[in-house]
């Protein structure tokens, strides 16, 4: 097959540049295959993350011709002719070449108040398939963090990272909110501390999700509705007044540990 040109960003936290590599193309290859062959021949120290090479682990996220994608699921023959540009995810600090520091996401994961079910009855919990399916859609998430990468709330505004969980964690909160067994109420928490209101539903996250999770429609919008209902709904307010029950505050939700 004809040669291909790979235009790869090489550098570290101090800076870098695009470097062109010419290499033979092979039938059926994905971008990650070509990167691996470059490592084995021309650029042994070219850094990239990968694990499963089958779209299941979410390690090899990058921007290919400017589009956030998994390198293992992007076929070379489906890209337009000409050089293929591969750059690291832009929202996260560079470690080296295509590898970025994604620890922001692991910090946000720590802030999620844990799942908190009632004690299991004899023989285990019973749940209907239709009820688990809503959460199952979000649990398809492979944590590639492409949705986090593309979200302009943090991509263009670094300072928002302090108080914005991002789409990956909004689907996590939605999953817990919709879980048939969970007893914690995190609605005030996502509204006050996780920056749910900052999302203005441009659906960029949904567009790049390799698992085709409908992040905006099925998670973020319902979550916004529930958070707003809990906070502002006058009927719910009156109901709480009459029954004397309080909604769970962000602090209370965050403090709940199983």
């Amino acid at each position: 097959m004809a040669d291909v040109t790979m235009r790869i960003w090489r550098g570290d936290d101090k800076g870098g540049q695009l470097v062109d590599y010419r290499i033979e193309g092979n039938e059926g290859e994905v971008v990650l295959d070509v990167i691996h062959r470059l490592q084995a021949t021309q650029a042994p120290d070219l850094a990239c993350r990968w694990n499963c090479k089958a779209g299941k682990c979410g390690s090899c996220s990058a921007e290919i011709n400017g589009m956030p994608r998994l390198m293992c699921m992007t076929r070379m023959d489906q890209l337009p002719a000409g050089p293929v540009t591969v750059t690291p995810m832009r929202t996260f600090p560079i470690i080296k070449d295509l590898v970025t520091d994604v620890s922001f996401n692991f910090e946000m994961a720590k802030r999620v108040p844990a799942f908190n079910p009632p004690p299991a009855p004899e023989g285990g919990y019973r749940m209907a398939q239709v009820d688990v399916e809503r959460g199952q859609e979000f649990r398809k998430c492979i944590e590639c963090f492409l949705c986090q990468n593309v979200c302009h709330v943090i991509r263009d505004h670094e300072d928002n990272k302090a108080h914005y969980a991002g789409p990956r964690f909004f689907i996590r909160y939605a999953e817990l909110e919709m879980h048939p067994l969970d007893t914690n109420d995190r609605r005030e928490l996502v509204r006050e501390r996780m920056g749910l209101g900052l999302c203005n539903i441009t659906k960029c996250c949904t567009e790049v999700c390799p698992e085709h999770i409908k992040i905006t429609d099925n998670a973020i919008i319902p979550l916004k509705e529930r958070a707003v209902d809990a906070h502002y709904d006058p009927v719910a307010w009156l109901g709480r007044k009459i029954t004397g029950r309080k909604k769970r505050s962000a602090d209370e939700a965050a403090a709940l540990r199983p």
Binding site: A120, G124, Y125, Q129, V132, L176, H179, D182
Partner: peptide, 12 residues
């Protein structure tokens, strides 16, 4: 069964 208590959602 323990995994269900930790949040896993198996098919039913």
């Amino acid at each position: 069964r323990e995994l269900e208590g930790w949040g896993a959602l198996f098919d039913r």
